[in-house]
Structures are given as structure tokens and as C-alpha cells.
């Protein structure tokens, strides 16, 4: 009974993925593609499992860059938002800068960063940080703006200074929002890391992908895509769990 039910729940939740795998396979078989054009899903999955040791260093590198950028960019965004909240004049500089940074496609940003910082780890890290910066900035700012008047009045009556309002009220309102931003940007951080790695071709999943492509190793290249997707989904799920934890703690 419970088993049948859990299978039923599985179907309800996972039918699009099953459909996707089956139509992928059918598409390859029906078109008669050879493995240099498009591999069948089962071979790709097999390559990931048998050659997993080859993937591990790249996975760790990309994961490290994405997480490092996520933490760094979020912190910078948080600090920027607090500064803007603090001073109207500063908001004059930071707001247009943030608007521009929001609009720059990472594809345009990464080549410039790569040229300025030079090929290598700092360029990858700088790219992921810039991607995570803006959402953290905006979400923190809207959290700080959501401090209710009553709470602020209470602190004024108590004679609190701005720093106390920030540390006792602002953080409380900004932190849940900041976690939303982490959840939203987590997959983008993985994407940014991979794009930077792909372009510079030094290390990481993006570089592995680029190499596999140039050697026409389709199973490896599609396998990298698959692994990257799983990594990205896991980072997203992790961020989601963290967000729920913070939320249940603060509300």
C-alpha cells in the first residue's frame, strides 16, 4: 500500500524526466544518429559511472568556484546594501552601478574579466562573485526596507542608534531575504563558473566539456553536461534547505 503509493508519488513528480530520457533515446534511434552526432542516454550515463574518477577533480573545482563566488558575492552584495541603506548620497553611486551590473550579460562580462585579471582561478571566482552580487544587494535592500515603522519607532523611543537598529532589527529582516537570493543565484553561480572555465579552458567542468567537444568525444561531452546539471541541482537543493532552516529559525 505505502509502496504503491510512493511509486505513484514518484510518477507524479518525475514523469517529465522519464519522458525526456525516453524521447531522447527514441530521437537518436529513429534518426539513426551515430555516437559522434548524438549518443544514446544509456551510454552517457554509463560513461559517467565508469569514468567517474575522471570527472571528480573537475566537479570539485567547479563546485569550489561556484560556492566561493556564491559566498563572496552574497557578502559583498549584503555590505553594499547596508551602505546604501545607511547613506542617501552613497545610494547615488551604488544604485546606478548595481543597475548596470544587473544588465551586463555574464557572457559579456567574463571575457573582460579574463583579460583584466588574466586566465585562471581569480577570473573564474570574480565572474561567479559578480553574478551573485546583484541579487544579494537587491534582496538585502528590500529586506531592510521592510523593517516596519513600529519596530523602528520602538528603537527610537529606546534611544537606539542606527548601528543597533541594523544589528537587532535589520539583520532579522534582511537575512531571510538574503537566503532567497542565495537560492536564486546558486544555479547561476554554477553556470558562471562553467562559462568562465569553458572560455579559458584551464580546469573545471567547463574546461572538461570544451576538451571533450574538441576531441569529438560525445559521450564525455554529454556526460559533462549531465554531471553539471546534477551538480547545479544539488547546489540549488542545498541552498533551498539552508533557506528553510534560516526561515524556520527566524520566523
Amino acid at each position: 500500500m505505502t509502496r504503491a503509493r510512493s511509486i505513484g508519488m514518484g510518477i507524479v513528480h518525475l514523469w517529465p524526466i522519464a519522458l525526456l530520457l525516453l524521447s531522447w533515446d527514441a530521437w537518436v534511434v529513429l534518426n539513426g544518429y551515430t555516437s559522434t552526432v548524438a549518443p544514446r542516454p544509456w551510454f552517457v550515463i554509463a560513461d559517467v559511472f565508469t569514468g567517474f574518477a575522471d570527472y571528480v577533480p573537475s566537479i570539485l573545482y567547479t563546485l569550489g568556484m561556484a560556492l566561493g563566488g556564491l559566498v563572496g558575492g552574497t557578502l559583498i552584495g549584503f555590505v553594499g546594501a547596508v551602505l546604501v541603506w545607511w547613506s542617501a548620497a552613497l545610494s547615488g553611486v551604488v544604485t546606478p552601478a548595481a543597475l548596470i551590473i544587473r544588465s551586463v550579460p555574464i557572457t559579456a562580462l567574463i571575457p573582460i574579466i579574463a583579460r583584466i585579471v588574466g586566465y585562471g582561478d581569480p577570473a573564474v571566482l570574480a565572474s561567479t562573485m559578480l553574478i551573485c552580487f546583484f541579487p544579494a544587494f537587491v534582496f538585502t535592500l528590500s529586506g531592510l526596507a521592510a523593517i516596519p515603522e513600529a519596530g523602528r519607532d520602538l528603537f527610537t523611543v529606546l534611544g537606539a542608534n542606527k548601528l543597533q537598529v541594523l544589528s537587532r532589527l535589520g539583520v532579522l529582516y534582511a537575512l531571510p531575504n538574503l537566503m532567497v537570493s542565495v537560492r536564486i543565484t546558486a544555479p547561476s553561480a554554477v553556470l558562471a563558473a562553467m562559462l568562465a572555465e569553458f572560455l579559458m579552458g584551464t580546469s573545471g567542468l567547463g574546461a572538461l566539456f570544451s576538451q571533450a567537444r574538441s576531441y569529438m568525444d560525445m559521450e564525455r561531452s554529454w556526460g559533462t553536461a549531465l554531471v553539471a546539471t546534477v551538480v547545479s541541482v544539488l547546489v540549488f537543493v542545498g541552498a533551498q534547505l539552508m533557506e528553510r532552516r534560516v526561515e524556520s529559525r527566524l520566523t
Partner: peptide, 15 residues
């Protein structure tokens, strides 16, 4: 949709 969002778009390029 959540998985699709998490897929790094670069991974879709060869497909």
C-alpha cells in the same frame, strides 16, 4: 521547471 532552471544553459548547447 526547477531542474530546467538548474541546468547550466551551456550544457544544453551541444544538444
Amino acid at each position: 521547471a526547477a531542474i530546467l532552471h538548474a541546468v547550466p544553459t551551456i550544457a544544453l548547447a551541444p544538444l
